[in-house]
Structure formats: structure tokens, C-alpha cells
């Protein structure tokens, strides 16, 4: 709460410019991901969104998560998705059968908009005047240094961490078993 109460006169202009540029780029890219007719293009637009998310993490002073985001998401997951595209012999060029029928798209739009309206309303109601007071505060004060994260993971969240490790192992084995040709 201390971050909220501190009064500053700083205008946050650079941060705001950065945020809105990245945000608009992300939304456009995300829309392209779900509308493009080319599977490979979709994957590349996804890279843009993921990079934007990493940039937002930097803006939020969470550097370690941002780096992880780039490494894991852009470095591994997108490559994995592209492999999936190629292994399933998906059309590399334009194709019209990526989307469902019109009715399905209509229903999806309605549900997505209803969800957005719902969430927007709740967010606007709940966090209307909450400010993020970042200026003049070190990353450590915001609890985002790598050391603080690792302290947290290996003490408070040790059990979930182990559980996630087991999950990853199980997923690895599961993926091998599923994808094995026999």
C-alpha cells in the first residue's frame, strides 16, 4: 500500500507513451493471430504479442519474468508451435479452412465481447483510482529482483515449485509417449 500513498509530481510521460505504443501493437498483433489466414503468419504475430508482453513486464520493473518470457515463450514455445505446424503438414500459405463456420465465429464474437464487457465493468468498478507509483523506487523495493524471486520460490513456494517440476517431467514423458510412433 505504501506505493499507493506516496505522492509524487512525476508525470510518467515516457512510461505512458511506451505503454500505449506497445499496448496498441499487442492488441493489433493479437487480433491478427486470431484472424489471419496463414498459420505461419499467425505464429509470427504471436511472437509480436509475446515480445510486447515481455516489454510490459520491463515497464512493470519485473525484469526476470521478462527475460524468462523471451527465453521460454519466444525461444521455445513458438518454435515448438512452428514445428507442430510443419509436422502436421498444415498449409504454409493462405488457407480458408482455419476458421470455423460463420455461425461459430458469430457466437465466439458475442461471447468474447460479453466477457470483455463483464471484465471491463468489474475492473473499472474495482480498481478505478488505483495508481501504480513506480517512480524513484528501486526494483528491490518493488520486490522484483531475481534474488527476491528466488528467495520466494525456494522458501515460501518450494512445494508448488516441486509440483511444477514433477508436472514438467510428467508432461515430458506424456508427450513422448503420445507422439511415439508404434
Amino acid at each position: 500500500m505504501s506505493a499507493l500513498l506516496a505522492q509524487t509530481t512525476y508525470t510518467y510521460l515516457p512510461e505512458q507513451v511506451g505503454f500505449w505504443m506497445i499496448a496498441i501493437l499487442m492488441v493489433v498483433a493479437a487480433l491478427r493471430v486470431v484472424t489471419t489466414k496463414n498459420v505461419v503468419h499467425a505464429a509470427l504475430w504471436l511472437v509480436v504479442v509475446l515480445a510486447g508482453v515481455a516489454a510490459q513486464f520491463i515497464l512493470l520493473a519485473s525484469e526476470f519474468v521478462a527475460v524468462t518470457q523471451v527465453l521460454v515463450y519466444i525461444g521455445a514455445i513458438v518454435v515448438l508451435l512452428l514445428f507442430g505446424v510443419m509436422l502436421t503438414k498444415a498449409p504454409l500459405g493462405r488457407s480458408d479452412d482455419l476458421d470455423g463456420p460463420k455461425v461459430q465465429k458469430g457466437v465466439a464474437v458475442v461471447i468474447a465481447l460479453a466477457l470483455l464487457g463483464m471484465m471491463g465493468w468489474v475492473l473499472a468498478e474495482s480498481w478505478r483510482d488505483t495508481k501504480l507509483d513506480l517512480h524513484g523506487r528501486t526494483v528491490g523495493e518493488l520486490g522484483q529482483t531475481t534474488g527476491q524471486l528466488s528467495d520466494s520460490i525456494f522458501s515460501t513456494y518450494l512445494l508448488p515449485f516441486e509440483a511444477v517440476s514433477i508436472l514438467l517431467l510428467a508432461a515430458l514423458i506424456g508427450a513422448i509417449v503420445l507422439a511415439r510412433r508404434d
Partner: peptide, 12 residues
């Protein structure tokens, strides 16, 4: 998702 929206709307 539809049900989630409706349920959330009821709660809100």
C-alpha cells in the same frame, strides 16, 4: 465461457 459470463454477471 458463456456460463462463466452469466454467473459472473449474477454475482456482480
Amino acid at each position: 465461457f458463456g456460463a462463466a459470463v452469466i454467473l459472473a454477471a449474477i454475482f456482480v
